[in-house]
Simulated assay, not measured.
Amino acid sequence: MPETAAVSIHPSAIVDPQAQIGPGTTIGPWCHIGPDVSIGEGVRLHANVIVDGHTRLADGVEVYPFVTIGLAPQDLKYAGEPTRCDIGARTVIRENVTIHRGTAQGHGLTKVGAHCLIMANAHVAHDCTIGDGVIIVNNVVMGGHVEIGDGARIMGAAALHQFVRIGRGALVGGVCGVESDVIPYGSVLGNRARLVGLHWIWLRRQGVDPSEIHAMRRAFRILYPRQGGGEGVLDARLTEVKRDFAEVARVQEIVAFMEAPSRRGLVRGARPSSNVLESEGA
């Protein structure tokens, strides 16, 4: 976009003179932009959008009506510290979404990556970190400090407990309560999330080689056997998979995620009787 592109600000909008507004940005009626806000090139705020705090909207972000970004977190420990909120390039935020800035006790930053889609009525809490290309569907809510990896899909009305990690490319089913970590490329369903397989459709759409998908399927069956298995043998299964699939990068990514420190533990596999371990996901 040319650097000389004009900024369009509706007469009813309130934009603090200290705010930084990039060229080509459109600020619609009844928007309110605070003094510490930085807005990049070609951003569009449709109407009735509030952006406050130390908040940055990168180039090409589009925000629909009645969204609030960068307001104070819903945390009783918050005492007005100058924490931040960052929205990545070309992310689209639909109606009534709320995204709160971080806390001093957390990362001090709430971050949404580039090319994300956050649908209507979703809530992104303080200190959450959302990767690139993530889709969050209507009415999703999350507690503070949630981490969502690149390309993950969070379906409608899912609820993510604070400190939960959602791995890259994972799928969380609709109306699903997630109280523990979801492995990369995992697919979870149920009133309380249970791992039902890997997100095969997403992997295929990403162009992952069929031989690697086949290797991931075999590794998954070792990690989460149909016949079940006690928690005490998980370490042995992880060691086996790490050794036998050393050349499969995505399998090693899953193993590293499972071995990393966790505040919430890992989502359990579905019960063997459920017959859904080979679910394709959505």
Score class of each variant (00 low, 15 high):
Asp181Gly: 14
Leu160Ala: 08
Gly190Thr: 03
Ile166Trp: 06
Ile135Asp: 01
Ile166Glu: 03
Ala104Cys: 05
Leu171His: 03
Ser187Ile: 06
Trp200Ala: 07
Gly190Leu: 04
Arg90Phe: 09
His126Thr: 11
Ile201Arg: 10
Cys116Met: 11
Gly167Leu: 03
Val172Gln: 08
Gly167Asn: 02
Arg101Trp: 03
Gly190Lys: 03
Gly131Ile: 01
Gln105Asn: 10
Val146Ala: 00
Val92Ile: 15
His115Asp: 15
Gln206Met: 12
Ala157Glu: 03
Cys116Ile: 14
Val97Leu: 01
Val92Leu: 12
Arg194Ala: 07
Gly144Glu: 10
Leu189Thr: 12
Asp181Trp: 05
Ala159Asp: 00
Ala193Ile: 07
Glu179His: 13
Ile93Met: 00
Asp86Gln: 15
Leu160Lys: 05
Leu198Phe: 14
Ser180Thr: 08
Val208Ser: 00
Gly133Ser: 13
Val92Ser: 06
Arg84Ile: 04
Gly88Phe: 04
Val172Lys: 12
Gly88Cys: 13
Ala122Ser: 15
Met119His: 07
Met155Tyr: 13
Lys111Trp: 05
Gly133Leu: 07
Met142Gly: 10
Met119Ala: 07
Asp181His: 13
Val196Pro: 02
Arg153Glu: 03
Asp86Cys: 11
Arg101Ile: 00
Arg153Thr: 13
Gly186Phe: 09
Thr91Gly: 02
Leu109Gln: 08
Cys85Gln: 10
Ser211Leu: 10
Gly80Asn: 06
Gln162Glu: 05
Glu212Thr: 15
